[in-house]
Nucleic acid binder design. Structure first.
Lengths: 365, 365
DNA sequence: GATCTTTGCTAAACCGGTTTGCTAAACCGG
DNA sequence: CCGGTTTAGCAAACCGGTTTAGCAAAGATC
């Protein structure tokens, strides 16, 4: 079999083909599409005719090369996309971003590490600007992103002066969540953090710089106010997924912990805890209270509906996109904008005062 | 104020700059990165040195122009992205796709109509191939997509000979769902379809060609077998979102319908019905049985856990991506592959035999 | 009817890289 | 010291468009 040219779909028509076929120059063809007024209407029409016949569509890459702009925004996730999409938070955020990109005629490219390297991924990415989400300051790739030299908006990340940034008041939200449990009378709490902890050893190091750090700070402030301390093992790491939360709580239970309240830094993990509780025969909120974080739509459907900290996820996406587009448009307000959106506690049915603890006894393993 | 050059971030270094600075030709710079063996090691090193100093990164668009490939796959949705992301199904599917694109070093671009035109969006899209999802045959843009002349894999859509396609056995799944309710004894059923109905008037027109058509066929087969008919208004349209399902069921209720069982074509809408039922004080499954479709992760967290038809959504995404990549790689198996994945009923707790109906009476409006 | 302007289109440069063909210098054996 | 092979690097063509500068013919002006 003849290897080449045989089964190639149809060697895409180029502008030169149209020009030849129509008996005009390449420039004329370009004009026919982009500035028809420079051509006799009749000529323009004929050229377009030929173009359609040949199925000609201007090569977008070539066009971009001269245009200098790509009309595409990137969403950069330092985690594999599959992992990112596993947390409904991400889709909700993307929903917000896409609302405005779509409206402005921009495409949306999802960028994640290529063979482990975010830098390499960025080098291949065809975008005018990028929204960075989920990047903690301790991430090794931070610097390379920073130096890419492309307009950037950071979400929930430490602000860099040269880039825009948008975040929510994590600490206030976490504070409200913890206070809520404490006010209800809970004293034995379990905290579920997200992701590979930045802070195995020094949990308080540079709090302000990571989402986890800021939320933990809120929890701690409340605990301090009520003079409550977290027992050993009272802080557990749970990936922000259903499975993550479920597994983390089960493990804590196996380790003998018997908290009456759980503070989860994500709704996804909180939903997992709900599942784990059902598994263990615990009634929520009678035996166990749970507070999540994010206020995802699914919190209204869980059993029971989840008490959680609301943050305007969708709006965060919208604002990030708008901010980035603003930074891209030449004249207008420069980069470096910073915004912090509010959070607030939403009390549903997964929290209640702790039961009179019948006994301190444990251990039926 | 000087208009140009004043506040431009930093005019990105081009290959010519590096060449000049290093005292070599553009070709040498290119070689230093792409085929260093053609240069004296020492020279290559020096060039790379200069490049780093200048912060040079080869312009991805220019590179693509010559390379001829973009290393990017597109996911095409005929609906606005915001709407697509509102159904967790979409994120799950994307999760599957991204697993393989990421592994193969491909980027992922989400394409949706630009100012209402899918064709225009496709014209701007920089991709090697595209996965089309959610496109029903009745969609006006079908033909333009078809003619784009770019490798394509169709998901859940009518198969075109020249393109790959992947689907699931919708009819069998729907059949099993309906049979389940009928076997439990239900006779008053409500069907929730998705999206703007293709078939307001002729619901059976070209069943095989759309997801809705195929699922409806399954429902009908079961109904026919049990000689049950759907009452007037027994088919309701509900967008595949939480709100969509909730609103649709409430409306049906207001219209005086009192089904004992609901067949929903999406889990998202089914979850909404759960919510509506709670609102109306109906106990699920005692007063109302519900069967969804998709088997999304959230079905395990709803109250009660949802009986639904499982389809391998994530795998569908993976297979679609793999199929597309296969069609892209030159030598190997050509386009036109077709696959159908299986579905199966998963019984959880949202279905039970109907209560002895106290009265046939209705209408408390 | 000669000059000026406008109209309609083309040739060539350009965007920023990659790749091919070629040459000059260094190296080699005899 | 000469012809043949390698090595190292350059100039130019190319990818597929857009855009600028400019030319020839037609129309306007007097």
């Amino acid at each position: 079999m003849d290897k080449r040219g045989s089964d190639l779909p149809t060697p895409r028509a180029r502008i030169a083909d149209v020009a030849r076929e129509a008996g005009v120059s390449k420039a004329a063809v370009s004009f026919a599409f982009n500035s028809p007024e420079r051509l006799k209407p009749q000529t323009a029409e004929r050229i377009r005719q030929v173009a359609t016949t040949l199925g000609y569509r201007p090569h977008p890459v070539a066009r971009m090369l001269t245009a200098g702009s790509t009309a595409t925004l990137g969403i950069l996730s330092p985690n594999p996309l599959a992992q990112a999409f596993a947390n409904p938070f991400f889709a909700l955020f993307a929903e917000g971003v896409s609302t405005v990109t779509e409206d402005r005629g921009f495409g949306l490219l999802f960028i994640s590490p290529l063979h482990g390297s975010l830098e390499r991924a960025m080098d291949r990415a065809i975008v005018d600007g990028v929204i960075v989400i989920g990047l903690d300051h301790h991430h090794p790739e931070v610097e390379s992103i920073r130096r890419i030299g492309i307009p950037t908006v950071l979400v929930d990340a430490p602000a860099w002066p040269e880039h825009g940034a948008i975040a929510v008041d994590d600490t206030a939200g976490a504070l409200a969540a913890a206070k809520h449990l404490l006010e209800l009378g809970h004293r034995d709490l379990l905290v579920l953090t997200m992701e590979p902890s930045e802070s195995q050893d020094q949990p308080d190091g540079d709090e302000a710089l990571s989402v986890m750090g800021r939320r933990m700070k809120g929890y701690r402030l409340a605990l301090a106010e009520y003079e409550v301390t977290l027992g050993a093992g009272g802080i557990r790491q749970a990936p922000a997924t259903f499975e993550g939360g479920e597994a983390a709580f089960l493990r804590a239970w196996e380790d003998g912990l018997r908290p009456t309240g759980v503070l989860s830094m994500s709704d996804a993990a909180a939903a997992g805890v709900l599942q784990a509780a059902r598994h263990l025969g615990l009634s929520v909120p009678n035996d166990l209270s749970i507070v999540g974080f994010d206020d995802l739509p699914l919190t209204r459907f869980t059993d029971p509906p989840l008490t959680t900290v609301h943050q305007p996820v969708r709006r965060k996406g919208e604002e990030a996109a708008r901010m980035l587009l603003r930074a891209l448009s030449p004249g207008s307000g420069r980069a470096g904008e910073h915004r912090v959106l509010e959070t607030r506690l939403v009390v549903r049915s997964s929290t209640a005062p702790p039961k009179q603890r019948s006994q301190e006894v444990i251990g039926d393993g």
